[in-house]
Design a protein around this nucleic acid. Sequence first.
DNA 1: ATGAAAGCGCTAACAA
DNA 2: TTGTTAGCGCTTTCAT
Lengths: 327, 327
Amino acid sequence: MANINEVAKVAGVSVATVSRVLNGQNVVTPKTKIKVEDAIRKLKYEPSMLGRNLRNSESRVLLVLVPTISNPFYFEIIKGIEQNALDHNYNILLCETDSNPERENIYFDLVRKKMADGIISMDPAVNIDTLKELSKNHAIIQCSEYSLEGNIPYVTIDNEDAAYRAVKHLIKLGHEKIALFNSNEKYLYARQRKDGYVKALEEFGIQVNPDYMLYTDQLGFEQGIQATKKVMSLKDRPTAIFSVSDLLAIGALKELNNTGVEVPDEVALIGFDNIDFSNMTHPTLTTIAQPMYQMGTVASTMLINKINGEDVENKFLNHELLIREST
Amino acid sequence: MANINEVAKVAGVSVATVSRVLNGQNVVTPKTKIKVEDAIRKLKYEPSMLGRNLRNSESRVLLVLVPTISNPFYFEIIKGIEQNALDHNYNILLCETDSNPERENIYFDLVRKKMADGIISMDPAVNIDTLKELSKNHAIIQCSEYSLEGNIPYVTIDNEDAAYRAVKHLIKLGHEKIALFNSNEKYLYARQRKDGYVKALEEFGIQVNPDYMLYTDQLGFEQGIQATKKVMSLKDRPTAIFSVSDLLAIGALKELNNTGVEVPDEVALIGFDNIDFSNMTHPTLTTIAQPMYQMGTVASTMLINKINGEDVENKFLNHELLIREST
DNA sequence: ATGAAAGCGCTAACAA
DNA sequence: TTGTTAGCGCTTTCAT
């Protein structure tokens, strides 16, 4: 494995000139440029990022923090981040925290130790104090999930409006007994979505029934099953369920199918996120689509700008209600 | 951001001593060690991986190549790789090739340029010639999907036997008209799984019917629907389908549900991989479980050993037929 | 047990 | 346009 010195020697020039050719600086004479390129080819030289990164005090790595990689919600966002990162010569380190503080800390250490130039956090359970502290010296962007503390820039959607529209859609369909499967209210988005739910009900003069509002710590399939069992065992069953995640809704669907409850005839169902599987179920799931890919590219652009010392502003992107078979 | 020099100055020692403390070498006097640790705390010093990596000619990054991150098959494998990597102080760079040679090359470049110390390839569509070439100078392991060319170590399961057992299970259930939804036979695992299918049929004296053997370029939900449409429009419909991926089988299930065909009564269904969703469908899917997490840890261990210059041997892990509602 | 110094591979400021 | 040289932050050899 040749290094820049050997290339310089073979080409009969200095390392500075080789470096100039490598970095496409146009000061080099075509003639010398060719000499250098020949030497590079001859030696099969590959410039080492190790030297370059140390010299430039950068790693060209972006850290992407997700609670779990198996939640399909993150796929498109990650794709957006990654494509944008590659376009700007960055690579992404995808980090799964499992909402485990220890693991999270391993990853935070990577930016402290200069293995990463910045962080895009999508973990709602992230330790916001640590994040605040880190953001003083490092570039950080929050994506989708965010906290207002610490003035960390974020990109997200209007969660309240999204929930409002979903519930309004159910009401227009004639539903009045509408259950809400929500996330823990310690999360901002959970509070916002509840607000949207309540707002829609109140607008149509429907009493908010606490029995219909269920909270789960995780947003998975299993939790959807459990919540459905609970709500369907009430004397006064709901005729519609609004879940704040598709996975939750798919769990609900499974339980309803299992117990012979017809969807949407007996119980209508709305999810959130428009994951691929929401269109594969039987019946297909009405859901709220977030512009995930775009969210990813925007977050990535914001982060790269921040790394470059620019000021960045919070962004709100548009969502959309996708009406399918389950309502 | 302090560096090692400042720490040395504040502690009143040389940088060598600081480095020794950092790396837990036991030669340092407790007294000086304390001085150094105090200085580190005082300056909030964080050692830079950039300097260390250059000095050690390593990046402590493992590159993990998958065709797509949205295929749930890879989740557990990736988790296994990651946990094992973290345990050995490595980080993983998860790379999605989209089976796109250009993208693939971007990632290969990372190891050429020392941004990664080795590769775990899980992409069946990987350019095997490039991989062979790379493996001369870099540590590479194949996981799950593999090619015998180039003597690149791999970890996998016995695909032929897995398929054989799945089909035998269907035969024992009384099925004789068994369709095979397979991947393109340019892939080794596709040929192996077909061999298992044929072997089971022949063992029970059942004629192999070419009409029942369908090939799809991708192993997704949509392909499952299309293949099912095709096979169910035959005059002599099959009574069972063996799909080489769960996603394919879930597509089949969707199509059968849509057209009112009862599963498993009219058509039995077997998938492959035991992805999470295979247990969420209605009915739940009989499938073949690969020890994915273990596959990941094994692959990661093999790679790290290879990076350290050790010899590594190919490994075959055990699979298991999970009988659920669809058969 | 500790320190001085070289060097990993690169870029860029300065000089020519 | 090109070369010389310092230095990014660290580890390690060799002296002491």
